[in-house]
Design a binder for these strands. Structure first.
Lengths: 202, 202
DNA sequence: CTTTTTTGATTGGACGACCAATTATCTTCG
DNA sequence: CGAAGATAATTGGTCGTCCAATCAAAAAAG
């Protein structure tokens, strides 16, 4: 590679993307600077030219993955029907599909969970994502409540429950891809969400 | 430490327990044989006398953690009321409490999730746990269905949904311990489960 | 004296970080 | 315009550290 000017932001992004690919392939404990360098096609030294240390690259990688995740979810939620119930079902399905069809991203995300337990910065990045997610889901729930289609409830707590449901089932989908189909899982989850928010119940 | 005869199984268990303590303290990527040895109070060499390599210790650690987890859950589910609805609620609360009050165990468990993505053996151990969990929850659901208190449904799929809900919400409880109280979370989750399985809905 | 258990020093390798040298590009000024 | 210097980008190798694994030898128990 010949040095060209003004490529700094591109290189940074390139390194982050390579890191994510490495994480998806070899896992967190298998990640080395050497492998990341190989993946970019550049030299090892370049990594420390653009990032202070390995941890800084990982922080940037988590930022990238979280941004990508809620961008995708927001996109999936934006299009489609305007009815709150249908929107929620679409959102749940989009999340579950993501975990199966964009496996690499989801895997990397799960890998970061373990590290978050011991790294404040990573935890903060994730907390911000979950805040956005809960607000996004909460807005749809609130819409349904206003329209008189959902029962009254604490919309943010309800969103947390829905988000948790999606995460937990995604995890099972990932661990055991054969046992559950995405279609089936999203049908069951959609049903659970609908019933959770339904106005009347026996 | 003085060498006594017939301590092999005790030593193994000791090493596994030390490993779990290290994982809870320093995380997966911070785990070294040296630290584990220090934690046991024994020498480094002893680790390779009882285990083939580092990975074997980690496998044993996951086996220990999973066994412990479903032992605890089974215990919590065994005692208490006989009514299916109340039993499910108790089970949900027990799981959520575990994530908060026995943080160390839960953290170690989450750390393994990331590694499972790249290690078949770890994945199998986890799959076995989730099978047991789903069957355990499924049995309670089936009881409720037989008693005419729950609607008819695929009990194992329903169990997967409930298990996912608990996992996902536990995760949020772990990431953000201040925002959600266990009591509140288990109230919302219990409500979600009850409504999910309720016979009639508007 | 044999077997089981334990030690702790050693080994070879891999890792993250660092840096001096090099190349390419841009800027300045004659 | 074009040489010369400044700056940005990139290389490839080196450094000290740390790691998992090995092993010969010692220590305890039968």
């Amino acid at each position: 590679m010949s040095p060209r000017r003004g490529v700094a932001p591109l290189r940074r992004a390139e390194i982050v993307r390579a890191t994510i690919r490495c994480l998806a392939r070899d896992g967190y404990s298998g990640l080395t600077m050497k492998k990341v360098a190989r993946e970019t096609g550049l030299s090892q030294g370049i990594l420390h030219y653009y990032f202070a240390d390995k941890r800084a690259i990982l922080v940037a990688a988590l930022e990238s993955v979280t941004a990508d995740l809620d961008r995708r979810v927001a996109a999936a939620q934006a299009r489609g029907p305007r009815d709150a119930r249908a929107r929620l079902r679409a959102l749940v399905e989009a999340c579950l599909r993501l975990a199966v069809e964009e496996r690499a991203f989801w895997i990397v995300f799960v890998e970061f969970w373990g590290e978050m337990m011991h790294d404040r910065r990573l935890r903060e990045i994730n907390a911000a994502l979950y805040d956005r997610m809960r607000r996004m889901i909460g807005a749809v729930v609130a819409q349904g409540v206003r329209a008189g289609r959902f029962r009254r409830t604490d919309v943010l707590r309800a969103a947390a429950v829905i988000l948790g449901l999606v995460d937990g089932v995604s995890l099972q989908l990932t661990f055991d891809p054969a046992a559950f189909g995405v279609a089936e899982a999203s049908r069951f989850c959609g049903e659970a969400v609908t019933r959770y928010l339904a106005k009347e119940i026996a």
